[in-house]
Measured scan of single mutants.
Amino acid sequence: MQFKLIINGKTLKGEITLEAVDAAEAEKKFKQYANDNGIDGEWTYDDATKTFTVTE
């Protein structure tokens, strides 16, 4: 399945997509990506659109 991450950071904004088996795997990958890029914020997930959002 394809999942999307919307980044609303203080210095980094944008979207990325990835393939994952389920939402838990996608969340783990997205949070690792955010951590690697210094993004720390409030996370939400919309199951209907398979979209994660992180807002700093």
Rank of each mutant, 00 (worst) to 15 (best):
M1H: 09
Q2D: 06
Q2E: 05
F3V: 02
K4V: 06
L5K: 00
L5E: 00
L5N: 01
I6W: 08
I7G: 01
I7Y: 07
N8H: 10
N8T: 14
G9H: 09
G9Q: 08
G9F: 12
G9W: 05
K10V: 12
K10E: 05
T11D: 04
T11V: 14
L12D: 09
L12G: 09
L12V: 12
L12Y: 13
K13G: 12
K13A: 14
K13L: 06
G14L: 14
G14C: 03
G14V: 12
E15P: 07
E15K: 07
I16G: 02
I16W: 08
I16M: 13
T17V: 15
T17A: 12
T17G: 08
T17N: 10
L18Y: 11
L18I: 14
E19I: 05
E19T: 15
E19F: 09
E19V: 10
A20R: 02
D22T: 14
D22G: 07
D22L: 05
A23Q: 15
A23C: 04
A23R: 15
A23E: 11
A24G: 15
A24Q: 12
E25Q: 09
E25K: 05
E25Y: 06
E25P: 01
E25T: 13
E27F: 10
E27V: 11
E27R: 08
K28T: 11
K28G: 06
K28A: 10
K28W: 12
K29V: 08
F30G: 02
K31Q: 05
K31H: 10
Q32H: 05
Q32Y: 06
Y33A: 03
Y33C: 03
Y33I: 10
A34T: 09
A34F: 04
N35I: 14
N35Y: 11
D36P: 02
N37K: 11
N37P: 01
N37M: 14
N37W: 11
N37T: 09
G38C: 05
G38T: 06
G38Y: 08
I39R: 01
I39P: 01
I39H: 03
D40Y: 13
G41N: 01
G41T: 01
G41P: 01
G41R: 01
G41H: 02
E42H: 14
E42K: 09
W43G: 00
W43F: 09
W43I: 04
W43Q: 01
T44L: 13
D46G: 02
D46V: 14
D46W: 05
D47A: 08
D47V: 11
A48W: 10
T49M: 09
T49Y: 11
T49V: 08
K50M: 07
K50F: 09
K50R: 09
T51A: 03
T51D: 02
T51W: 03
F52C: 01
F52E: 00
F52H: 02
T53I: 15
T53H: 11
V54E: 00
V54Y: 02
V54S: 01
V54L: 11
T55Q: 14
E56N: 10
